[in-house]
Structure formats: structure tokens, C-alpha cells
Design a binder for these strands. Structure first.
Lengths: 185, 185
DNA sequence: TCAAAACATGAGCCTGGCTCACATTGTAGC
DNA sequence: GCTACAATGTGAGCCAGGCTCATGTTTTGA
């Protein structure tokens, strides 16, 4: 049912898809659809949560020993590549989150907050001198800046997209270096 | 008329405001409203263009001799402070652009593109060794990353917001340094 | 076997964007 | 001043889409 809605949203956009269509495509009467979801927005929200959990899971991978022991440069590069790949492989994510921001800003915020928290928990493992405040601010910047950049990049021509991903890696590395490199105070 | 719509959108959000209400508040019949704007989205678009021009004008200020001769650090700091101030002083911008992204993505894209172009024209004045490609990629990153960061920061608690603005300045400076500092190749 | 509870259904309500037939005002030729 | 015609203003109502709820239909349990 969610999958049917997802496919429709991806293809034609949230606003253009009617609840009647979703119900018809899922081969259930509208009444039944409204027993599972209190309103149209809830369908979007359910999808959003599914996606955020998926992306969050990917981030978790960067909390593993193997990853944490990499040089910062490689770590950041792989991190961003992984996000880029997620966006490429999950076209629904974009379709859903483009809408979520306006239709349900709280849900969008909650999703970002989940990612920020995950990242805030990773940071001390890279440098245990960082204060909690630092970690929160850095995570915020990373999630909001990189999330938006990679998202916007994914809509560009492949060649330019490649370049933008590289720039994003540069941006992230240059930003994090002073906080995370051994030389930092 | 635009001002009436703006006030309503800021207060209650685009979706919650009906065209009938706008017409009533502006003391014109709906028919008349629809002579000025082909549809509800056009009102939003008109507001968006007004805002983008306003912000673009602020960016132009950073193409002046006086500004260009500043050290990169101060230049970047003032640049971002200026954007932050714009967001603070122009609550309508946020209300409008939160919607624009989904309701009229082309318009949103066009707005960003206008800012990117302006910035692409400034960059060679800071370092004339940069290729056109470099300039475009850097501008893209700056507009999308900083725009989003400052926007999201503006919804946070004042103290945290301050911190985020500082981090954004750091982010921008660290990113631009290799491209723009004399030492750079 | 039969109440009564639980669930499924889709006709239709309601709201909000937008239209268009009609009213009003403005213009020009006599 | 009067009439014909154009330009403009107006708001009742059309239509689509989100959502409800009265009415079946099935399940449960005594």
C-alpha cells in the first residue's frame, strides 16, 4: 500500500496524486485506506519515516571500528559518497522530502533531528575533546548543508553532479579538519 | 495586494490561506484577484521574485571595490552575516520559499540560479585564475549550502542560532580558502 | 441459531481553487 | 444627450479532491 503510494508520488508528485487513485491502485476502497492512515499527509509521513530509518541505518555504518580508523579524508569521502548513492538509489526519498518540508515541517525536522543525533553520537569517537555543544552544532551543519547539497546535486547533469559531490567532499573535509585532525586543539 | 497575501502566508502558511480570504482582506472581489494573477501559485511566485531580487541586491553589494579588497576572512563573515540579517528581517522570505520548493520548483530553482549567477560573476574578482567551471561549482555549493544553513539556523534558539552562524562562516571560509587565498594554486 | 461486535464499503458531503455569464462603467459617433 | 459598443468588474456557482459515515457484510461467542 505504501509502495503503491510511493510509486505514484515519485512519478507524478504528491499534490497531483489523489487519495482515490492511491486506493484504486492499491485495490482497496478509500474507506479502508483511511483506516490505515488518518489523512493523506500520514501516508507521506509513513514514507518519510521509512526513508529516514534507511538513511540513518547507513550512517550507523560509519560508527563501526573499521570506518572510524580510516584517515579523515577517506572517511569523509566515503561518507558523502554513501549519501550520494543513497539519493541515487532511492528516488522516492527526494520526491517525499521535497513535499514533507512544507506539508509536515515537524516530520521533516524530526527526520533531520534523528540524523543529527546519530552523527552527534559518532563525533566523540573521532575526537573526544569535543564538547557536547560542539558536537551538536557540527552535526547540525553537516546534516543540513550536506543533505541539501547532495540532494540538489542529484538533480543535475551527471558530469556536473560528479563535480558537485567532489566539492561537497572538499567542503566537509575542510570544515571538519580543524575539529578532528590530530593537530587540532 | 501582494502585501496582504504576504502577511497572510507568513501568519498562517500558504496552504491554509484561501484565495477568497486574500481577496476579502485586500477588499477586492475574487474575480478581480484572478485578473491580476492567473492562479494562486502566481501570487506566491510574484512574492518569490520580489524576495529574490531583494536578496540578490544585497549580494551585489559584495561586488563593490570596498568589499572585494577586504581580507577573505572578513569578507566571508560579513557576507554570511548579511544573509543572516536578511533572513531575520524578512520573515516572509522563509514562509514563501518553504512553499515554493514544492509548489513551483522551477521558480525556486530560478531564484537560486539568479543568486548563483551573481556569485559566479563575483568570484573571478576574488581570484582570476578560476575557470568558469570552478566558479559555477563553487557558487552552487555556496548558495545551496549556506542558503539552507542560514535558513534552518534562523528557526533555532537565539544562542544556538548565533553559534550556527559562526559555524557557517567557518564552513564557508574553510571551503573558499584553497580557492581564493593568495597561497592557492 | 442468533445477537452483537468488528470490520469493509463507496456514495456523497464540504471546502477551496477557479470560471464565466452578467452587471457596470467608460468611450465614441451622432 | 443618446445609443452602440468595448472594456472592465463581480460573485454565484462549477468542479475536483480530501475525507466521512450510514449501510452492508463478516466474525465472534453464547
Amino acid at each position: 500500500m505504501l509502495d503503491v503510494a510511493e510509486a505514484a508520488f515519485v512519478e507524478r508528485g504528491y499534490a497531483a496524486v489523489t487519495t482515490k487513485e492511491i486506493a484504486a491502485a492499491a485495490e482497496v476502497p478509500i474507506g479502508t485506506l483511511y483506516q490505515f492512515f488518518p489523512d493523506k499527509g500520514a501516508i507521506l509521513q509513513a514514507l518519510a519515516e521509512r526513508y529516514t530509518d534507511l538513511l540513518d541505518q547507513q550512517l550507523q555504518h560509519f560508527a563501526t571500528e573499521a570506518m572510524l580508523s580510516l584517515p579523515l579524508k577517506s572517511y569523509v569521502e566515503q561518507f558523502i559518497e554513501s549519501i550520494d548513492r543513497f539519493f541515487q538509489d532511492t528516488p522516492g526519498y527526494q520526491a517525499v522530502f521535497a513535499e514533507i518540508t512544507t506539508v509536515m515541517p515537524e516530520t521533516d525536522e524530526a527526520g533531520d533531528q534523528q540524523l543529527i543525533q546519530t552523527f552527534t553520537r559518532i563525533l566523540p569517537k573521532l575526537n573526544d575533546h569535543l564538547s557536547a555543544e560542539d558536537c551538536e552544532a557540527i552535526s547540525f551543519v553537516m546534516v543540513k548543508a550536506i543533505g541539501n547539497l547532495v540532494w540538489r546535486a542529484s538533480g543535475q547533469e551527471p558530469k556536473f553532479r560528479q563535480r558537485l559531490v567532489k566539492e561537497t567532499q572538499q567542503l566537509a573535509f575542510n570544515y571538519l579538519s580543524p575539529y578532528l585532525l590530530a593537530a587540532a586543539g
